[in-house]
Design a protein around this nucleic acid. Sequence first.
DNA 1: CCAAAAGTGTTTCACGTACACCCATGC
DNA 2: GCATGGGTGTACGTGAAACACTTTTGG
Lengths: 229, 229
Amino acid sequence: MSYSYEYPRAALTVDCVVFGLDDDDLKVLLIQRDLPPFEGRWALPGGFVRLDESLEESARRELREETGIENVYLEQLYTIGEIDRDPRERVVTVTYYALVKLTDHQVQAATDARNAAWFAVDDVPALAFDHAKILEMAHERLRGKVRYQPIGFELLPAKFTLRQIQHLYEVVLDRPLDKRNFRKKILSMDILVELDEVETDVAHRAARLYKFDRRKYQRLTKQGFNFEI
Amino acid sequence: MSYSYEYPRAALTVDCVVFGLDDDDLKVLLIQRDLPPFEGRWALPGGFVRLDESLEESARRELREETGIENVYLEQLYTIGEIDRDPRERVVTVTYYALVKLTDHQVQAATDARNAAWFAVDDVPALAFDHAKILEMAHERLRGKVRYQPIGFELLPAKFTLRQIQHLYEVVLDRPLDKRNFRKKILSMDILVELDEVETDVAHRAARLYKFDRRKYQRLTKQGFNFEI
DNA sequence: CCAAAAGTGTTTCACGTACACCCATGC
DNA sequence: GCATGGGTGTACGTGAAACACTTTTGG
């Protein structure tokens, strides 16, 4: 290549913060490193970007290879290029965060034999590299974005109760919400479809199930509607 | 280095969208390329990331070298790594946007002889690479962020009139605002200091000058205050 | 029949919005 | 004295927030 650049090059990686939600907490999916540096430490799933794939493709491939997760909501977060963030050499990492339905990905898959596990976001072990900082940024982004974009549904099963959505927002925003006001608000947006089904296997009155109507949401958005919790 | 990675590596660049504001428009600073590809085309200032500087340092250095601009508000925007975005080879670019006070940077400086000029954001020439897309993203980010963070002041001189702030928001948000309501709102936030000065050289009653009180803003923020226009 | 959560309306208050005139200044 | 923008207050309506009891169901 006559016109290729002569500069020495940084290595380029992607790292993913995968969030999931259960009945108690917001969780994050970590993998345990089996190589130095930080051997044995928990870390975000991620790896090197190949020349024949875009950044997002790279992130999705790493997620698949390291955790078995596919077809999830994925959004770029931030790119970190501090000089000494990797003890080996200059490594720039493009970070992403993903939202998954824990019910669909309950058991941690680890196709390449690495250990993977879910941790409560507020109770993670010491992480490799600057991954704690990345997790913090992702958490902050989620907290901010969930209020203005209907991305919370990515953390819920396809059919959910109003109680589940409210719980989602209470966990992510870390404050209690008023039940009546919350229901009024979310229903008045007219982006949920009430199903002819109720939840099962509960030891009390079963709640109605709803699903998110993405088409309706997109139609409303075009007309100037803005989602907000 | 025994533990360096063997993967072939993408080139890594930074590109900056520099916004400025004058009496008419929101402007963007472009430079004219003097090398192929896209020789002669206008493009965003930017260049290759060196191994001994962080990404932000790289962006600031390129801004200084190509446009003479220093000490400005700079924020990372997005990282683009589509495979074919550069015709030569794989180039990943970390994009930034900057907000400058046009009064301080009126004349385009170009220390390395390249031509630099301000263009109205809504009337830019054809740009090199995918820079039009980057500009579009930056514009959208600015429009969104200016409403929730007091970054608009970065586009104004240190001392400004209420009319100037209102004009800023009208230009960036692209809609007219009510004068009385705007004044009520911005003053009620209690983040401006009223100065004992008025503007000069105007052919009508001179307006009072104000400045943004960053310390007060930060204090209020800690107490739960949220800026919003 | 008891425990547990589902489901449901009204009142109050703050804030956003709409709107028009007089004043000060420079030319 | 005239043109230009500076500066100011009120009324109205919408939406956020506070708040408690009855109903349904499973065990």
